[in-house]
Design a binder for these strands. Structure first.
Lengths: 188, 188
DNA sequence: TCCTTCATGTAGCAAGTGCTACGGACGCTG
DNA sequence: CAGCGTCCGTAGCACTTGCTACATGAAGGA
């Protein structure tokens, strides 16, 4: 018989758990549905992680790493020429269909971080930090202040994404246009 | 006997429910704790609201209205002189201690809106809309583009608040300073 | 007075929650 | 072969979940 039981462990469990959480969210994530998604029982999840809290913590850590490698793979081989282009790129990247589930999960992570739930703050902080270095690597070569500019664009981008999440994408876009930091939708 | 039973209704219930939600969050809000906070039983909450979903929906609507009136009351009688000052004012306003519980709740509302949970999107959209007109009223009188500028500052502010919620307040502040839109902490 | 309607308390139900007790199958070591 | 530790399935526990069935008291119209 082929390996129908490929030796359960945290490493084999986490990808399946992450897939389930990306689909159904963190808030209502309870042990039995999680276990079912991973092909086991709640009994085994507790066995391998100790309790639910550390399971969630390790899961968030894993998801943050997945996100980091996804960002690395999406790193273009050439820098942007202007800040406008840089902002457009990172917004495009965040709005790709493959990122949608991630975005929906992201706001749950932010909410958990704001409330102080154990694993959430660290994961959110790591993901933002990764996003920042990604943005710094994308900044134009002749930018007078790449570090400050990247932080500025990051703030602007997060605000835009948040407004988009609550049905105010148009509002954010109008603001970007008014500021001269977004020209037209078609470029690059 | 004085009115220990002051005639239960949605109107008398909602403030007490809102207080509980502001304290303990929306995610884990279940009927029995909510009822206890309001001095009744889950039985009565279902009786007056029909089911939990419409209870949450009406509660979010109520909270959005409370937020709107709080913004109205925080409206200064004179406009800002510069965009920097305008941004500083609204950031100060959002960072006041009395707003902290609200902020924590806000990210839960955003997460719910992103996930498409019934009442959340409408409440979030209304609150952002209110914030926008508030900001427009605060914009400098001589601003060349008050509408666009307000949308730009709103986007920037939301990004700043989000980064603050996940432990990157410093990052956002550095970005604002680099952009020239924030000078020093002490002003006005 | 009788009847109906509204507002509320008590008790409960089926499902789901995190977690545990117990035991069995396996491989390893003595 | 005996013993032991690792991994995992079955069953269950005490608790919470949203919601309901039933009864009761008060109010008001006929």
């Amino acid at each position: 018989m082929p390996p129908t039981k490929p030796q359960l462990s945290r490493e084999t469990l986490l990808p399946l758990l992450a897939a389930h959480v990306l689909e159904h969210g963190l808030g209502g994530a309870s042990l039995r549905p999680l276990a079912k998604a991973a092909g086991t029982s709640d009994r085994m999840l507790i066995y391998h992680f100790g309790n639910k809290e550390t399971l969630i913590r390790e899961l968030l850590e894993y998801i943050a790493n997945v996100y980091a490698t996804a960002l690395d793979m999406a790193l273009g081989d050439e820098r942007a020429r202007t800040r406008q282009q840089c902002l457009a790129r990172i917004l495009d990247q965040a709005r790709q269909p493959s990122m949608q589930r991630f975005m929906v999960l992201w706001w749950e992570i932010v909410a958990g971080a704001a409330r102080g739930i154990p694993g959430y703050g660290a994961a959110a902080e790591a993901m933002i930090a990764k996003q920042l270095v990604w943005l710094e690597q994308q900044m134009p070569e002749d930018d007078p202040d790449p570090a400050g500019g990247a932080r500025f664009l990051l703030t602007l981008m997060e605000g835009t994404l948040m407004l988009g999440a609550v049905g105010h994408a148009r509002t954010a876009l109008d603001g970007l246009h008014a500021s001269g930091l977004a020209e037209d939708e078609a470029e690059d």
